[in-house]
């Protein structure tokens, strides 16, 4: 049994992967495309919160919301001006993959590619006897819980959520009932991008920030989606949890080849259950 700190670290990472994967699956279920730039929105979210707390002196929680809002706007712009103008899933995929380069390049131009660190906002450690949790990590976990609860509420108890679920199930029938698929997809894109940016923002005090931090979370979120089953929101959450824990625990036992073992396990899961743990059907 690995020490409890490793598990806490795993939980923190799971929270990030979960939030990212949730946003990606949400976008996928409505738009039918994977947004490959999610990791870069994560990175930009971290930068926004960094500059808003250090340069502008905005409090950290408001900085997180600001990051979410700004990146939701950018996500909607991407949807409106790039994705909508391209036909064919393949070409949209290429465009969003190319946007990775464009956004990373823009970030290195604006912020330079040096590492920077945001000072810990919530210093101190909660000592529970067997395990000590720093307040900053607790903030990440609590924030994720709040976001997930909010998303659960929005999806299940509001009109927008009802519309989102309807469009995800039957786009044609939903639009026959007077739901504007166009507007809904913009809203969903905004929500998805905001989730990624807020995940980046809440992580900002824990890890160094540079223009390339988005790559690993994006790959991990993709793998979480695959484990959970593409198109399943529960699957994204469970996949994120599994991945975060496995990553930390395996790295604790074998540091060098941990990622190889991790990927091997994922391939094994897919061979046993090709549609993912919560996927509806194989094709």
């Amino acid at each position: 049994m690995p020490p409890a700190e490793i598990l806490i670290e795993g939980l923190t990472q799971s929270c990030i992967y979960m939030t990212m994967a949730f946003g990606m699956v949400l976008v996928f279920s409505i738009l039918g495309i994977l947004n490959w730039t999610h990791g870069q929105l994560f990175m930009l979210g971290a930068f926004i919160v960094f500059y808003s707390t250090t340069a502008a002196g905005i409090p950290f929680p408001i900085g997180i919301l600001l990051a979410g809002l700004v990146m939701a706007g950018i996500g909607i712009l991407i949807k409106k001006f790039i994705i909508d103008r391209i036909k064919g899933e393949l070409y949209i995929g290429v465009a969003t993959l190319a946007l990775i380069f464009a956004l990373e390049g823009a970030a290195s131009l604006l912020f330079t590619s040096d590492d920077r660190g945001l000072a810990i906002i919530l210093p101190g450690v909660l000592n529970l006897g067997v395990v000590a949790i720093s307040y900053q990590k607790m903030a990440v976990i609590i924030f994720t819980l709040i976001v997930m609860t909010a998303m659960y509420f929005v999806l299940n108890h509001t009109k927008v959520g009802l519309a989102i679920r309807a469009v995800a199930q039957q786009p044609v029938a939903a639009s026959l009932y007077g739901i504007s698929t166009e507007r809904l997809s913009l809203i969903v894109m905004g929500i998805g991008c905001a989730l990624a940016a807020m995940a980046g923002a809440i992580m900002a005090p824990l890890y160094p920030i540079n223009p390339f931090i988005g790559r690993t979370p994006m790959i991990m979120a993709l793998l979480a989606i695959v484990i959970g089953g593409l198109g399943s929101l529960t699957g994204a959450i469970v996949g994120g949890l599994i991945l975060g824990f496995l990553h930390s625990v395996i790295a604790y036992y074998i540091s060098y080849l941990s990622e190889v073992v991790l990927f091997g396990l994922i391939i094994l899961i897919l061979l046993v259950r090709p549609q993912g743990l919560f996927g509806a059907s194989a094709k």
Binding site: A98, L99, I100, F101, A102, L103, E104, G105, A106, A107, S108, L109, T112, S113, P211
Partner: peptide, 11 residues
Amino acid sequence: TPGLQSFLFGS
């Protein structure tokens, strides 16, 4: 300029 290359390539 670092970053300009990948920015222009992507765009």
